[in-house]
Simulated scan of single mutants.
Amino acid sequence: MQTVFDTAPFRAQKRLSAWQDAICEHYAIVNVQQLSDEFYCGQIREGLLGTLKYTMASGTPNMVSREPKHLSVCQNDNIFVQLVQSGKCDVEQRGQYFTDTRGRAIVFTVAEPYTLRYQQSHRSVYVEIPREELKKRTKIENLKCLGSLDLGEGTGRLFHDYCMAIYRNYESMSPAERELVGCHLIDLFVMAASRKAPEERLEVDIKEARRSAVKLYIENNFNRPALSAATIAKENGISLRYLHNLFEDTGESVSEVFWDMRVQHSRELLRSPAHVGQNITEIAYACGFNSSSHFCNLFKLKFGETPTEFRVRAAREELSN
């Protein structure tokens, strides 16, 4: 992971203001107040897991306040999950108060005011999850602050351990692996949140969440000729039987999903002037097909015309416009 900010190079008197600027840049627009007499010290390390941002921040006692006036400068509508590794943090949002310690995570949103009070020197992991990613996996349209998550057992413990494993192994992962790990981390968060008390329970469909993660994987890999249901199951860490079970109530098999993505993408290439120099076979191979005849048959079955007929018609329509 990359160190994106450290107070060490700054003069002692400038460190607190530099820390506030760093928090505003890497998290959200806030005010920062020092809670000790010593000169401030802090560091932020950052990594990306696809659409997720994963950071490890440490610092001396301070209070972070996101006030109503800051909401007009809202860079995003994301959800933060804070996992304290040392020290503790008192969190307040929407009139709710929580204490974040090593056995509990606090979940809050930047879309509303909040206060984070670190009474001691601290070190915490922050997982920043885009709201849109949660919407794909939940039935809640307007997700608010979720409160706390128990990290001591079950999926909460798995979520915590997965977060720590990411920190230890981040540098050894490829960008594609990090993106897949990010999808898995969201799934674990959703499962952990679904175990809350009934009156606080986050309405989730775990099967739908897992299916969304697999579909994202297919979108990123559909043009691989060797892609198969077995490959998808293996690279997503699930059994082939479970993979088929994920799609059994959708009306299409997992194989139909990636073949459909291939033929849909081929249609876009056939329509695109940028690919006019490619013949039908080249486009078929670019989309993951091993056989041009299979491609032509599937294309006609899907769209009612051959790839050549579609390309001629699309070119004529382009000229007429």
Rank of each mutant, 00 (worst) to 15 (best):
2 Q>P: 03
2 Q>I: 09
7 T>N: 07
7 T>V: 08
12 A>E: 15
12 A>R: 15
20 Q>N: 09
20 Q>A: 13
23 I>A: 01
25 E>R: 14
34 Q>V: 08
37 D>H: 12
38 E>D: 10
38 E>K: 07
39 F>M: 01
40 Y>W: 14
47 G>K: 06
49 L>P: 05
55 T>G: 00
55 T>H: 00
56 M>I: 12
56 M>T: 09
57 A>V: 10
58 S>G: 12
63 M>K: 14
64 V>D: 01
64 V>W: 04
64 V>M: 04
65 S>E: 09
66 R>V: 00
68 P>H: 02
72 S>G: 09
73 V>D: 15
74 C>F: 15
75 Q>C: 11
76 N>Y: 14
83 L>W: 02
90 D>L: 15
92 E>I: 14
93 Q>W: 10
95 G>P: 05
96 Q>Y: 06
97 Y>A: 09
102 R>T: 14
102 R>K: 14
103 G>H: 00
105 A>Q: 08
109 T>W: 03
111 A>C: 14
112 E>G: 01
112 E>D: 11
115 T>F: 02
117 R>I: 04
122 H>S: 09
122 H>R: 01
125 V>Q: 09
126 Y>M: 07
126 Y>N: 11
132 E>F: 11
133 E>G: 07
135 K>P: 11
137 R>S: 05
137 R>Y: 07
138 T>Y: 02
139 K>V: 08
142 N>S: 11
144 K>V: 15
145 C>R: 14
146 L>H: 01
148 S>Y: 06
151 L>K: 02
157 R>S: 05
157 R>I: 00
159 F>T: 03
160 H>R: 10
163 C>W: 03
166 I>R: 00
166 I>Y: 01
169 N>I: 00
170 Y>S: 05
171 E>K: 00
174 S>Q: 06
174 S>D: 03
176 A>M: 05
177 E>A: 12
178 R>Y: 11
179 E>V: 01
182 G>K: 05
182 G>D: 06
182 G>L: 08
182 G>V: 07
188 L>H: 06
189 F>T: 10
191 M>A: 14
196 K>F: 09
200 E>Y: 03
204 V>S: 02
204 V>K: 02
206 I>Q: 06
208 E>Y: 00
210 R>T: 13
210 R>S: 10
210 R>D: 10
212 S>P: 00
213 A>G: 08
213 A>K: 03
214 V>N: 04
216 L>M: 13
219 E>Q: 13
222 F>Q: 05
225 P>Y: 08
235 E>A: 05
236 N>H: 11
237 G>E: 12
237 G>R: 03
237 G>N: 11
240 L>Y: 12
246 L>C: 02
246 L>R: 03
247 F>M: 11
250 T>F: 04
253 S>C: 03
256 E>N: 09
257 V>M: 13
258 F>Q: 07
258 F>M: 07
259 W>K: 12
260 D>N: 09
261 M>N: 10
261 M>A: 13
263 V>S: 00
275 H>R: 13
277 G>M: 15
278 Q>A: 07
280 I>W: 04
280 I>R: 09
280 I>G: 04
286 A>T: 12
288 G>Q: 08
293 S>Q: 06
300 K>P: 04
301 L>F: 10
302 K>Y: 10
306 T>Y: 11
307 P>H: 03
308 T>I: 13
309 E>A: 14
312 V>T: 14
312 V>E: 14
316 R>S: 10
317 E>D: 14
321 N>W: 03
